[in-house]
Nucleic acid binder design. Structure first.
Lengths: 336, 336
DNA sequence: CCGGCACCTTGGAACGTTCCAAGCCCACTT
DNA sequence: AAGTGGGCTTGGAACGTTCCAAGGTGCCGG
């Protein structure tokens, strides 16, 4: 028997013996209220368990102080730090972050965004949306929006991206410095960011006068397994493998190990993303880290610029990845 | 220059040449509307990009059809499936799920819950709240609430729990069946669910006439490392180690390997939780799986029972874990 | 003693919906 | 021809806030 009716500002006003306007003033921490009335109101509010109704408030203010975030997939560990970044930056600016998910289904994602729009959040962050750009382009007509974890050409939408091109370059640089010359990239055909990683790999290799070896893979462990099999057939074999992401690298690792090769003594292996398990000492995967938290805070900053009206031109920001050197990479075998 | 003013029901009414009430009827898919007016309204709404204002709606309906979820930590992979379960069940019942986080800080968690309360969500799911029960107990006064991923005695709050006691029993059963008699449990002193796992381990062992070996560990890789060192000092050494969770098991794995022991030939290792990396073939950790998705859907069902007023008595539900047998467990060495 | 001013307090309008009671229209019955 | 009823449509009240203009009160200076 939960009492469904929450106390309103009028209940508080009556109990404290003041007008509703005064209660409103106290709740918004206005300085123009006498100390005794303030205390009386606060006391009454506490006794009644009063809590302002966000709906009524947003209706008259025409502002919600809410940032909505549509996350395509809560299961993707890449997002967790990013979301914390959003939360952090929103809080700092006096906003609250509210999250939503489409469970990886485009239609549901659209409906999740719709929920956010109906709530009239002051801005929307879209984390790797999977629906079409056509749908995307409608959003900024009603509210400032920014896409992260994916690129988009949709008009009126800001973008925060990791510089995948540069990330690949960092990795090639690292491997070359160790002495590798035959480096293979296992790329993820249609995956988000995969194209830029591949392209970065190719240009990094050719810029150093090396021949880029490329094998098709994907972003899953199974794809890594398949790719690794293809790798072993290459002649000459590469001395280092750079997978499109950490999960695929794990598939590669398994195949290499069961083929009797030692990592990194016989062959070096690297991934991309620096997911949590990459740092387990049992794995110790060398990889490229994206500043995920920063991507989140940056997204909020872009939103705030638009909310405050200080910008209306489209902006796309890239953040710099860093190399994380662990134990799966080392010098090539002496014979090479 | 995003136009801040979204079209209202009145704009649609004017454009379609009908009253606002009729528009409202169409939006709510009432059957008592003539086909031509319905089309006219829908057309006008589409042209204007009209979207109902959730705040105004919730104000008069006294219902939001929203389920709020406070997640203590988006980074905990345990939650992702759980959240999908919540989303799924909410959608099925005509509700939308909205997520929130406290970034592991008790004070922030309280404020995240407050945001949900101000929004007047029709129910609240608390995923492993870290704040005190005193604070928890206030929530059900305003709205139905259920806690998951943690136990609580707070009045008026429902609970959905994994049966950790049974999970330990499953694991002991598995190891004993393989032939192990000296089994050690690495327990996590104050962690959520740790007490039940330890207790389950002890009673499972004694019920089989075996001596429970217990070493202090924790839920982190470092704790696993420390615990594993203590394990190696035991005399006689255990032939199997059951860690409090998968992450700690990874710490154990590393120590055992660098001590030159093979898993599972020389010693068996198991974890708890079945996190994503446990299934990587390079790891292949035997573990206990909690039906995370089911925990999420169950939580929503409990909420709905209260929302519909069909129950007001407190309910606590436990869900059954299952054993996931992989490659880190096997028969003890023949000498034993 | 009055006016002015600062400070505090107040009622009413507005925000965008839903709900309700009532109205209109037309076909059908008697 | 009038009455009845059903199908469709409508205006106004209500939801719980904030904002605004205006009202009080008390003190100070002239």
């Amino acid at each position: 028997m939960a009492k469904r009716n929450a106390p309103t500002i009028l209940d508080v006003a009556e109990r404290a013996g003041v007008s509703k306007s005064l209660v409103s003033l106290v709740m918004r921490e206005s300085p123009n209220v006498s100390e005794d009335k303030r205390r009386a109101v606060l006391e009454a509010a506490r006794e009644l368990g009063y809590r302002p109704n966000a709906a009524a408030r947003s209706l008259v203010r025409q502002r919600t102080y809410l940032i909505g975030v549509m996350v395509s997939d809560f299961g993707n560990p890449f997002f967790s730090d990013l979301l914390e970044g959003v939360e952090e930056a929103a809080l700092l600016a006096g906003y609250r972050a509210l999250f939503n998910t489409g469970s990886r289904l485009p239609a549901r994602e659209v409906s999740a965004v719709d929920t956010l729009l109906q709530l009239r959040t002051d801005g929307i962050v879209l984390a790797s949306p999977r629906f079409e750009d056509r749908e995307l382009a409608k959003i900024p007509r009603s509210v400032p929006a920014v896409v992260v974890g994916k690129n988009t050409g949709a008009a009126g939408i800001d973008v925060v991206m990791n510089d995948d091109h540069h990330g690949s370059d960092l990795m090639v640089e690292h491997l070359v410095r160790l002495g590798h010359r035959r480096i293979a990239h296992l790329h993820a055909v249609p995956g988000a960011g995969a194209a830029a990683r591949l392209e970065g790999f190719i240009s990094a290799m050719t810029a150093r006068g090396l021949d880029p070896m490329v094998v098709e893979g994907g972003f899953t462990e199974a794809a890594g397994v398949a790719g690794a099999r293809a790798l072993l057939d290459l002649d000459p074999r590469p001395t280092a493998v750079f997978a499109a992401n950490d999960v695929a690298a794990m598939g590669v690792m398994r195949v290499l190990e069961s083929a009797g090769m030692r990592i990194p003594e016989d062959i070096s292996l690297a991934g991309y993303d620096n997911v949590d398990f990459a740092s387990l000492e049992h794995i110790g995967l060398t990889t490229v880290d994206q500043p995920r938290r920063q991507i989140g805070t940056m997204a909020v900053e872009l939103l705030l610029e638009r909310i405050n009206g200080s910008r209306s031109r489209r902006r796309r920001v890239t953040v710099e990845p860093t190399l994380i050197e662990r134990t799966t990479t080392g010098p090539p075998p002496p014979s090479d």
